[in-house]
Design a protein around this nucleic acid. Sequence first.
DNA 1: ATAGGGTTAG
Length: 662
Amino acid sequence: MGNDFEKAVPRAGCARPKQSFSGPSVIASGSPSQIRNQGRPGQHYANYHSNSFNSEARRDEVQSRNTSGPNGFSGSGNKFQSPTGTIKAHGGGSQSNLRSLKSLQAVEQYYHTLQQMKWGPMTEHVLDSLHCKIDAFQANQVLKLLHDHTIALGFFQWLKRQPGFKHDGHTYTTMIGILGQARQFGIMRKLLEEMSRAHCKPTVVTYNRIIHAYGRANYLREAVKVFEEMHEAGYEPDRVTYCTLIDIHAKAGYLDVAMDLYGRMQEVGLSPDTFTYSAMVNCLGKGGQLAAAYKLFCEMIENGCTPNLVTYNIMIALQAKARNYENVVKLYKDMQVAGFRPDKITYSIVMEVLGHCGHLDEAEAVFVEMRRDWAPDEPVYGLLVDLWGKAGNVDKALGWYQAMLQDGLQPNVPTCNSLLSAFLKINRFQDAYIVLQNMLAQGLVPSLQTYTLLLSCCTEAQAQMGLCCQLMSITGHPAHMFLLYLPDAEPGGQNVRDHTGYFLDMMHSEDRESKRGLMDAVIDFLHKSGLKEEAGLIWEVAAQKNVYPDSVREKSSSYWLINLHLMSEGTAVTALSRTLAWFHRQILIMGTAPERIDIVTGWGRRSRVTGSSLVRQSVQKLLNLFEFPFFTTRGNTGCFVGCGEPLNKWLHNPYVERMHLL
DNA sequence: ATAGGGTTAG
């Protein structure tokens, strides 16, 4: 099944506004077209992004990126340290230094004016009253500092009306980039057209930004279309174009497409650079091919391409996740020998490793060490909240949450999720309720992860289901409507397929991991609630939509791998049953049968102890019950293998189609 | 003349 999906051109949807279910009545009676027509732009998701990073934090990032070279020294040259970050000023020489200073003042004036307000009729008057001439170069510098797209666009349009001012390719490209990041695709496109009319032809950079914007919002088809458009318009894609395409395809679960692009890039004579290598190392590692990732990392060095801090962080994180601690320590040292000081991300990776090994005190010690070089940010505090919460020590988790507030930081959604999860874990529902209410009161919009952890809790704590449901309901997340109005499966199940399809389309721009997490929780929940037919149908739709790209693949000709490794118990059983049923149908329809099937359960998602996995146990039970002819290989008791004639014979049984109902 | 894009934690 997976192979068909993976081979095909990415089918991740096309660009259209995100929709949200507008209310129960729509869904209850919901024909698909009704839902479509009544959908309105998803406020929910727009908010999520403006909340998850405040502009202060982002500026901080920009600053640290710009100022620290490999050794933490700031670059020399004509740079001014200013409150708005490092701005490279005009030319050289003492005469031009004065000019630079004036130019800088203009940039600062406009920036400070714009930063303080929302865009409104008054803003223009204030800008007019500055009586300060500005050219396209300076305007571009101001634009780069503005993260709010409404303000940026307001300023951009105001500039057009200034006598003597003319936008150029840079200001257009920067504006297009800001709009793209804010997912304002319509306006972005308009501006691209306008650009040609204004005699500023777009460049490769302009196209790259657009491709990136679509890709990060998960509109892969659209991103590829722009890539083709660009080609037809006579532009040659460069390293950045390829790097962007590689990254977005890998993130969306199309690792093979990413690999293919990597090859094509080299065929046209573009050698990979540090960014491209980093992206590739990351996507191989995340795709479960750690050995290949490390090989590429070494190859990169052999080819004379130096890893940067990000590359090291990626490689360290991958080794940490695979629990190869010796490699972690080695890379950590190599990184410092290469002249890079650990940054907040490096420290976070180390802290997380320590936390997961149960050494929370040492994780705290690393926090103290980090503090010597960096001001802790929200994610670092959030990590400690999470680690203590997972360790079951909610007092410590709360302590770190409060330390974060005292440090003047605003909590964000992931951190609240960690705290919420900590309370749920020890069944303190009243406190969980307070956390959730607090989130809402602060204008934080519960995320897919919030809903997912509540639903998982609901599945586990059967006795407290009512309380969990209450919590799920007050999140206001569309996933709740999806579950609440899930219809009973009609024969053939088309109604459930449609319902699920529309929900997943709505969740389009969420990242794949989050979607997988939610679908996993939903399927597990339904399976355990006895709605097995529905669970099976939902799994099929999710698989079709590439939410589980790694679950089924043809390793070599007629040799298939079913990977249940990252799934919950209910999902694993459902996925396995439906996949075997698919093989059954393939035999009947196409006459093609697999020669061998490996069913990999790993140790299961929640197990920390080798060999004691709930997933493995349930899968084995299921296989035994249906007399699936399997054996296990030496050294891997979590892998069930079926092959040859016994497998073929077994797959012919009609009951294979109904396995998931048991 | 000057400037613009892509990679990592939660």
